[in-house]
Amino acid sequence: MEDYRFLFKVVLVGNAGVGKTCLVRRFTQGLFPPGQGATIGVDFMIKTVDINGEKVKLQIWDTAGQERFRSITQSYYRSAHALILVYDVSSQPSFDCLPDWLREIEEYANAKVLRVLVGNKTDREDREIPTYVGEDFAQRNNMYFMETSAKEADNVEKLFMEIAHALIEQAKAREPVPEYKGNPGQSVTLNHRTPSTTSESCCSRLL
């Protein structure tokens, strides 16, 4: 058996081209990949990190943004502990699609999933989305918020480490024996809206 105390599934979603794959590569391999093609289906990567002396295994699923991979992508929402929704700060269209992505998340993900909004490519000169606009969107939708640059390695490590940290807190709050138990625990975000439950997922009403 591998030596880790927690296992968390992290899923990245968002339009194609916003830099999901680059974020994951930067975090897991410490590099900014030159001109790799668009992701096909889902890529996955493992990275074990140390949070206050606890070994945490992050299982990171990097999804393809295009519509034709939607049903593959959707199958990963349900068991995710954290969802990272990424847009490109230099692309208004990628920001405009966020509500669509949120709708997907509401429909397929566990209501308690940790949700993080990430504005990537802060290194670019031609920024279109000011920080406060992203922040505001995140706040209105009960999400964590962070701006990153996969290219300059800005905030990337921090993003994943804070997610791991928050998930540990959740897991510990959930039960005295903090071992991985499969279904995600309570969100630490203050959620004022009544969250939809898992049983509202696509086929639950059949039973």
């Binding site: 049903s71 593959i72 199958s75 349900r78 068991s79 086929c203 639950s204």
Partner: peptide, 23 residues
């Protein structure tokens, strides 16, 4: 297709873990 297999496994687990266990 590896992605196809993975997605169907995920969905099957969903049905078992949520719907069937709820039943």
């Amino acid at each position: 297709s590896v992605d196809g297999v993975c997605a169907v496994i995920n969905n099957a687990c969903g049905i078992l873990e949520s719907d069937f266990a709820d039943l």
